Each structure stands twice: as structure tokens, then as C-alpha cells.
Simulated assay, not measured.
Amino acid sequence: MRVIDLLHRWLGGTIGLLLAVLGVSGALLVHKDIWVGVPGARDAQVQDTAALAAAAERIMSGPDRPRSIVFASKSFGLDRLSYEGQRGAYADQAGEIVTRWNSQWERPEIWLFDLHHHLFYGDTGEMVAGVAGLVGLGFVVTGLILWWPLRRSYEFRLWPRAASRFPILRHHRDWGVVLAPVLALSLVTGSIMVFRPVANLMLGPGAAAEVDASLEPPPPRKAKLADDLDWAGMIATARRLHPDAEVRILSLPRGKSGLVSLRLRQPQEWLPNGRTTLWFAADTGELVHARDALKLPPRAQAYNALYPLHAAKVGGLPYRLVMTLSGLTLGLFGTLTVWTFWFARKPRQRREPRPA
């Protein structure tokens, strides 16, 4: 038990602030669609096939063609356009540009997303965040183990009784037990999305390989992107195959794939941008391959549900508030843990030698 206690305290004092940053940034991102202040952000979603086709034609036929369009959702009424580098723009649902940016630092919602997912350091930062998530999950487990012998002294308090070390530690212990399931859900879902092999532990042996195979795009084609593709025809094809699905993301070919992709979200899918995908030849616009997310293997569908659970994209406002509480609690615990571990300790008094 003493070893567990030492590991819990020392690791908490070491990476507590990192977990606090991930928790608070995640809590803010849960409500991103509400606080992004751009004209048209509160517009109602338009999913009429003709309107979508007209907007896509207008955006993609312009002189500055974006790499992708994320169409407006039910909670955010603007299309987001991504260009090379960090450039981007918001457009209304008629295809008219509302605002542009040349760097992520010009848009708080974008750099906050980069902070939460990559710690401003690309793939390396994402790995560090994933390790922090696994360590945080270890805190939940070891915290429950350390709490069990002291369970009779449990006291429910939203805030520490006093701003001193022992009241803070007691609040940390007792409040952590209450939120342990939610904290564990946040940390597990985040870690699996970073480290695919962790899916083998949660979804069973071989799950990671099954997920990778299910999400693998079709083989690349030797096709150069045409200047006058029938974007409206692609959207019409998608609607013909999936009449009830939302049109979510239109993307130009990545690398040398030679394929334009169109992602849809069917009503049964939790993932906000869906995984139902159509691929079209970049030179002719003909349909090359279609993937129905509802026909993927069960474990692949379970994997697709992790992000909606992590980012509170399901469950409405009540679940968003629960995940907000989880993130803020992680921020509070991480900050106070570092403070109590490094700064709130009382110096030990030296004992005076007894006279002979």
C-alpha cells in the first residue's frame, strides 16, 4: 500500500499540471459550438441536396480551392474550409466566405483543439497526451485502492474545507471517488484514440487490426485532380445511396491517392461526421468505392463510438455537463495536487538534542 501511495503522489506531483491542461481545454471544447463568435454560427443547418451542391460548386470552383469542406452541423451553422498549412475559413451555407485566417493563433477554437490533442507539438505531443491519459487512468485505479481503507471517513464536499494541505487531500480523495467512473471514461476513450493497441485491451484481442482494416481507404488510383469535377453530381450520388444521411465532409485527394472522399453521417451513427464514406475518381468524378459504416464489424463500430463519448457529441446537454464536470475536476485535481505536493508542505522541525 505504501508503494502505491508513493507512486500516486509522486506521479501526480510530476504530471498534474499536464492533466489539468488537458482537462480544462477539453471542458472548453465540449461547448465550442456555443462560444465561437462568428456571424452565422447560429444559423439553422441546411441539408437540402440542391443547396449543398450549389455551395460545394461555388467553393470548389473558386480560384483558391480548399483541401476540404466540413459542412455545417445542427449545432454550428457555418461550413469550415481548410487550406494548405494553417490557413482556413468559415463560409455560410451558400458558399460565401465569412472570415479567413492564416494561422491557427487567429482562432481560439483551433489552437485550443491543437493544445488538447497535440499539446502544440504534432504527433509527439499527441503521444505525450496519450501517455498522460494512461497515467491518469492509473490514478483513478490507485486512488480507489487508497480510498478503500479510509472509506468510513468519507465526506461529500464540492470544495475543500480549507486551502491547506490535509483538507485538500481529503477533498481530492472523496470527490475523486464520486467522479471515478466519468474520469475513467474520459481517460480511457482518449487513450484508445491515441494508442490503437489499447483497443485490444478494451475491445478484445485483434481489435486494433480489425479497426485498421475497416478504416483502410481503397487502393490509390493514378488520377490527377480535374479542374471541373462535378461536385454536385457527387453529392447527388451520395443522397441517392443514403437518402437520410447528412453530408458532412468533402475532401480532395490525400497524397497520391487519386480519390476524392465524401463522408456522410447516417442517423444511427454517433460520430458527428460519420464514417459512411464514398470515394470518387479525382479525374472523372465517377464513384469508385462506397463504405457503409453500419455494416462494419461490431468492434469497428464500437471504436467509432469512442470519440462521441469522449467529446460529449451524444447525450445532449446533460452529458455535456457531465463531461464538463469531468474536465474541470481533472483541472482542479491536477493543479491542487502539484501545489500541495511541492509548495504546501510544512517544513519538518528539527528536534533539539535532549540534555544528558
Rank of each mutant, 00 (worst) to 15 (best):
L18A: 09
L18N: 09
L19Q: 08
L19M: 15
L19A: 07
A20G: 14
A20C: 11
V21T: 08
G23Y: 06
V24H: 07
V24D: 04
V24A: 10
S25I: 04
G26K: 05
G26T: 04
G26V: 02
A27P: 00
A27K: 02
L29Q: 04
V30G: 00
V30I: 05
K32D: 07
D33K: 12
D33H: 14
W35C: 08
W35P: 06
W35R: 12
V36E: 10
V36I: 15
V36Y: 05
V36D: 07
G37Q: 15
G37R: 15
G37D: 15
G37W: 13
V38K: 06
P39M: 05
G40K: 12
G40T: 10
G40D: 08
D43L: 11
D43Y: 11
D43I: 06
A44Q: 14
A44K: 14
A44I: 13
Q45C: 10
Q45M: 15
V46T: 12
V46E: 09
D48P: 13
T49N: 09
T49E: 14
T49I: 11
T49L: 09
T49A: 13
A51M: 08
L52H: 01
A53I: 02
A55N: 08
A55K: 09
A55C: 08
A55G: 09
A55M: 10
E57K: 11
E57F: 13
E57S: 12
R58M: 00
R58L: 00
R58E: 00
I59S: 02
I59K: 02
M60T: 02
M60S: 01
S61T: 12
S61W: 05
G62P: 00
G62F: 01
G62I: 01
G62N: 00
